[in-house]
């Protein structure tokens, strides 16, 4: 089964301390960084929601969260996951592996930075980053300097 054919893997969250943020996260947890995403939820930094209020004011966005090591073999799956995400969508690179390859920067099988595959709006450094760094990264998404990489064709670059 490919990522493309899986039903509704996204989860909806409120971000504690940032009521304007309403995020739908597709977490592609590929390595230890994924545990920190879980830690953010257990610590109450991200609060799971049944549904998202898209009507009232706020920053509503779908987030592709790549938390872990992307290998070249997996790259097509990442591109498909990005394509399935509802607009408006932004991609977050979480941790050293996703950012640059990190500890595996010299490995022949690891993708050196997932920004080669999809447009990244926020890079969060760490190995792994703290759960608080994830929240800081999500907050950064709502800043005006972040460009929404929307694409009318629904295709990623």
């Amino acid at each position: 089964m490919t990522l493309h054919s899986l039903p509704s893997l996204e989860s909806r969250y409120r971000v504690t301390g940032h009521p304007q943020l309403r995020v739908t996260i597709l977490d592609v947890g590929l390595a230890c960084c994924a545990l920190e995403v879980g830690a953010a939820i257990t610590a109450g930094l991200l609060v799971p929601q049944e549904s998202i209020d898209t009507e009232s004011d706020g920053f509503v966005v779908s987030v592709l969260l790549i938390s872990g090591t992307v290998t070249d073999a997996l790259a097509p799956g990442i591109i498909r996951a990005w394509a399935t995400l509802e607009e408006p969508r932004l991609a977050v690179s979480f941790g050293a592996c996703a950012n640059t390859g990190g500890p595996y920067w010299d490995a022949p099988t690891v993708t050196k930075g997932i920004d080669q595959l999809i447009p990244i709006s926020v890079y969060i450094p760490g190995c792994p980053p703290r759960p608080e760094a994830l929240v800081a990264g999500l907050v950064r998404l709502s800043q005006p300097s972040v460009v929404t990489h929307s694409d009318p064709s629904g295709e990623s670059r």
């Binding site: 073999a73 022949p108 050196k112």
Partner: peptide, 21 residues
Amino acid sequence: LLLRASLGEPPMRKSSALVAR
């Protein structure tokens, strides 16, 4: 199990240099 055949030399051999380095 893991690697594509196109990778060439077995990567854990010391003679297989890491090109990135």
